[in-house]
Design a protein around this nucleic acid. Structure first.
Length: 461
RNA sequence: GCCUCAAUAGCUCAGACGGUUAGAGCGACGGACUGUUAAUCCGCAGGUCGUAGGUUCGAUUCCUACUUGAGGCGCCA
């Protein structure tokens, strides 16, 4: 609508109909009002010129921000400075006034993101949130496009699972039992045989294990959907419900995996720059002046790549005093990750080959006996946006590792089967959609880049 | 889960060593002016000072608890 009108430079004198919400109204006593109209389809508003010969001009003078209207009129060259065309209205139908403009929650002024979270149902009418969501749409579409163009199949892995996939993170339990009247077995414990699925079930924390099954049959697959973690994380980069992309490639090692991750990110960055230049310009003006230039650089520049062991060396030689002491074997703390990508490398940084003792059971053990073929990609200002690994494809090694880490081989028998029947080297990663969007837009809290955030103590709307 | 900070007008904040009428900006509303565009200028309205207790002659101000929000850490995407 307004995007079509604004981007296509339509013929002058074309008759158009536009529907949307009033962003602002300015009147001239000479009997003319200017309405900035938005339908959310693009950043720019379109200017409607309403003259006092309109039958309902008295009502038009009462229009305030976010009143909804349908305008019919003619595309004309603008006499003013800010735009090349405008719409000379010959009819403005008012669909809905705003009842109480003095206390309307998203009045035409700057609001904090914290406040906008409290009115999450109305924040799509702000420049900030609408721009974020247009970019979220572009990013999601670009991810699908890149993977589809490169031979990946989108696999819809289940959201309800019986197994705690990675042993990582608290799970949300799914049940249809009456919590006030739980059935008990002979030992007095809850009898999950009488639950809907006949066993305890949970919301998934990752589609990876299921994706591996399809990878080892269809070669290149990915999952893209919501995942859930019941961790009481109170930070700017955690959500209880978030979206994750998890590609999984067969006949591949860690370097193939890293290459895919980097190419995918570059494609997404380039697509956003091409498609959402106006939205990005807004973020550069109001959120972080570097967001556009850093994306442009990244499209052409290589990411930094270093091993965990090299990273530790850099940290030890940095002469910086960290709160958490650095030594080989520690899990990198946020401050370490931040220093590596923000100060040392000053760009997204791939860290590979972490100590085996701090990583998940399914990661492939390296020949040194100390490390696994894992990789994280760290983004300045956001931290880890990608975590991935080459998977352990050797049955015996995997079984031994599960034993060591006390992971149930009974519930994951099917995952082990994949190593018994035609196993192949394979690798994959998880990309946090919200963290990626946060990095692209400069919007610091992931709660502001998802339409309705779910976090601990917060599931409104 | 741990630590720190905050809560005063629709929003963002200031303020009172505890004492008559709690201030500003933005927004809203009214007016002036103008092919305007974060318009400009003038004016007006708008407050149970988060909730519950406590101390006190008196609490929005001090204390305690609670609630909510934010940031940092941990976990991770």
């Amino acid at each position: 609508m307004s995007r079509q009108v604004l981007s296509s430079t339509p013929e002058l004198d074309t008759q158009v109909e536009l529907r949307g919400w009033v962003r602002s109204r300015r009147d001239s006593k000479s009997g003319i009002s200017f309405i900035a109209l938005s339908d959310g389809s693009c950043f720019d508003t379109i200017q409607i010129v309403a003259q006092n010969n309109l039958a309902n001009y008295a009502d038009i003078l009462r229009l305030t921000k976010d009143c909804s209207i349908i305008v019919t009129g003619k595309v004309v060259a603008s006499l003013g400075e800010g735009q090349h065309i405008e719409i000379l209205a010959d009819n403005i139908k008012i669909l809905g006034f705003v009842e109480n403009p003095d206390s309307y929650p998203v009045s035409p002024k700057r609001h904090t993101v914290e406040y906008l979270r409290e009115v999450a149902h109305l924040r799509p009418r702000t420049n900030l949130i609408a721009a974020v969501m247009r970019i979220r749409n572009t990013v999601s579409y670009a991810i699908h496009q890149y993977l589809q163009d490169n031979g990946f199949f989108w696999i819809h892995t289940p959201l309800i699972t019986a197994a705690d996939a990675e042993g990582a993170g608290e799970l949300f339990q799914v049940t249809s039992l009456d919590l006030n009247n739980l059935p008990k077995d002979e030992q007095g414990k809850v009898d999950f045989k009488r639950d809907f699925f006949g066993s305890p079930t949970f919301l998934t924390v990752s589609g990876q294990l299921n994706a591996e099954a399809y990878c080892l049959g269809m070669s290149k697959v990915y999952t893209f959907g919501p995942t859930f973690r019941a961790e009481n994380s109170n930070t700017t980069r955690h959500l209880a419900e978030f979206w994750m992309v998890e590609p999984e490639i067969a006949f591949a090692n860690l370097m193939d995996n890293a290459l895919l991750a980097k190419s995918l990110l570059k494609y997404v960055f380039k697509t956003v720059l091409d498609k959402n230049a106006d939205d990005m310009g807004f973020f550069a003006q109001f959120i972080n002046k570097d967001v556009v230039t850093r994306l442009e650089q990244l499209v052409n520049q290589e990411f930094a790549v270093l091993t965990y062991t090299e990273a530790i060396d850099f940290l030890l030689k940095s002469n910086k005093s960290f709160e958490n002491e650095v030594s080989w074997g520690i899990d990198l703390a946020s401050e370490h990750e931040r220093w590596l990508c923000e100060e040392l490398m000053q760009r997204p940084t791939v860290v590979t080959d972490y100590p085996r003792d701090i990583k998940a059971f399914y990661m492939r053990q390296n020949d040194d006996g100390k490390t696994v073929a894992a990789m994280d990609i760290l983004a300045p200002g956001v931290g880890e946006i990608i975590g991935g690994a080459q998977r352990e494809e050797r049955y015996d090694v995997l079984v031994a590792r599960m034993q060591e880490m006390d992971i149930s081989r009974e519930t994951l028998y099917w995952y082990l089967d994949l190593r018994r029947f035609g196993t192949v080297p394979h690798a994959g990663f998880g990309l946090g959609l919200e963290r990626l969007i946060s990095y692209i837009t400069g919007v610091q809290n992931v709660r502001d880049v998802i339409p309705f955030p779910r976090a601990s103590k917060s599931a409104n709307f």
